[in-house]
Design a binder for these strands. Structure first.
Length: 473
DNA sequence: TGAAATGTTGGGGCG
DNA sequence: ACGCCCCAACATTTC
């Protein structure tokens, strides 16, 4: 009797370890079709950004290599999932699909519809949780409502405790090997002229092995002092696992277990796990409030008088605002596809409060340029900074880019790395070059307005204007 | 996971 | 010696 294969549809779960759907498929003993579909649906406003295309390319290479080591091949297909599956069914006779759940509103809509269609065709679908410690619908208040405050949410999560699948010894996988894959190169996911991603590979190794390396590096050297160094952008103080988490090359369960197994919990490790908690909270919010990426969570902010200033937006995007810590962050983002979290808060506050530009503009830019762009985290975090989100920083909490620079980059190492035209300026003025004398500027080789911009706005005046705009709300 | 404004306290200079 | 003022330093309130 011919055994019908199981399609293992990879989406944001690009790993083989601790992968519930893969384990379940192996356990059946049926041949597996590992499939990845590139769906560039132009009607989806949140389709994968440019920086993440680069990441995806190398992550798929890595996943394919791991599958090949097991005797299979990752099948790549481009197009609309409904049509791709139709052809896969025809070519292989498969009538089982396993996948790991996605939580973006468009993905939920897509998967719900697909599941309905498949069931009507007699196709069996099984979905699994591969990327959240807590399913968004399983955490609720005493009144059965979704949480809107992080500390309460996380307290509840910790009280409930994450559930772990035990991955018992399963037989080695059997792969169905009669399907043709498209050529990854033909998808042209990596940039050519210009190749703006050439700095990315110094920092990143997409894929499961890269993720494990980052985790071990963090455990060995950085977790211990996480609480202190996590805010210093010139230091390697954070885990840098965010892009790996986004693509599911590692799961929060693996991180949770690794942290717990290494030692008893310290204030640093608790703090680190609470950052994983913020990710869970973002997914919780996005699930219960699917308009989060588009509209302010606090409805009164719909009436806020934002400014639409394309010149200022462009200066922010290019790292040419004249505020060194802001420009350093925006340039780090452009060159590495990533930005230190402390600096993300500073640049986001600057965009929404000093420039009064809608947070959605920043969200869109981050979406296109971050290798860790994640709909839930990105939307929730921008709303948090802008003051319109759930459990958000109050609007009047305006970051002073000079003080933030002096506090978190006191020696100016971070600024000098990313804004080299300021590298010869003394520490006293590294975060406020406009206050240096003509002589000091000349000696540092700086001409304001020429080699480095004048401040785009005056801090005190911008702050007053922002508070005035908020008062009118 | 702010910053600025305002309030309070206490040491030291000075007449 | 004493009161007065100034102003850091710290605390509290406000945005």
């Amino acid at each position: 009797m011919q055994v019908s294969p199981i399609v293992l549809w990879f989406r944001q779960d690009l790993r083989l370890q601790h992968h519930p759907a893969y384990e379940a498929a192996k356990a059946t003993g049926q041949p597996i079709i590992p499939l990845y579909i590139l769906d560039d649906d132009s009607t989806n406003s949140w389709k994968i950004g440019a920086a993440q295309q680069w990441w995806l390319h190398y992550s798929l290479l890595s996943l394919n290599k791991d599958i090949e080591a097991q005797g299979g091949q990752l099948i790549l297909r481009r197009g609309n999932p409904t049509e791709v599956f139709e052809s896969i069914f025809k070519e292989s006779g498969a009538h089982n699909i396993y996948w790991s759940r996605c939580y973006e509103p468009f993905a939920i809509a897509r998967d719900t519809q697909l599941k309905k269609d498949f069931i009507a065709q007699g196709i069996n679908v099984k979905s699994f949780n591969a990327s959240l410690l807590f399913e968004p619908w399983k955490i609720q208040t005493q009144q059965g409502q979704p949480y809107k405050v992080f500390t309460q949410f996380w307290k509840r999560c910790l009280a409930q405790g994450p559930r772990f699948s035990t991955f018992e010894k399963t037989p080695p996988p059997q792969f169905y090997t009669h399907l043709k894959s498209e050529n990854l190169e033909s998808w042209e996911l990596t940039p050519t002229r210009p190749n703006w991603a050439k700095g990315f590979s110094d920092l990143w190794q997409p894929g499961e092995h890269g993720a494990q390396q980052k985790l071990e590096e963090f455990m060995a050297h950085h977790l211990k002092n996480y609480k202190e160094t996590r805010n210093l952008p010139d230091k390697y103080g954070t885990s840098r696992l965010s892009p790996h988490l986004h693509f599911g090359e590692i799961s929060p369960h693996q991180i949770w277990q690794r942290v717990h197994q290494s030692s008893s919990l310290t204030s640093s490790s608790e703090r680190y796990l609470s950052e994983i908690g913020w990710r869970e909270f973002s997914y919780h919010l996005l699930y219960h409030f699917p308009s989060l990426p588009e509209r302010p969570f606090q409805e009164k902010f719909a009436a806020f008088q934002w400014q639409h200033n394309s010149h200022a937006l462009e200066a922010w995007q290019k790292g040419q605002t004249g505020y060194p810590i802001v420009d350093a962050g925006m340039r780090e983002l452009w060159h590495t596809g990533w930005m230190h979290n402390r600096v993300r808060m500073i640049v986001a506050s600057f965009l929404t409060k000093h420039l009064l530009i809608p947070w959605q503009e920043g969200e869109k830019w981050f979406w296109d340029t971050l290798v860790d762009a994640d709909l839930a985290n990105n939307a929730a975090s921008w709303q948090w900074v802008a003051g319109c989100g759930a459990d958000a920083a109050p609007y009047f909490r305006i970051f002073n880019p000079i003080l933030q620079g002096e506090k978190f980059d006191p020696e100016g190492y971070y600024v000098r790395q990313w804004v080299p035209e300021l590298k010869n300026l003394a520490n006293t003025f590294i975060h406020k070059p406009w206050q240096a004398s003509e002589t000091e500027l000349r000696q540092a080789g700086i001409t304001l307005g020429n080699t480095y911009p004048h401040p785009l706005v005056n801090h005190e005046a911008a702050r007053k204007l922002a508070l005035e705009s908020y008062r009118q709300l």
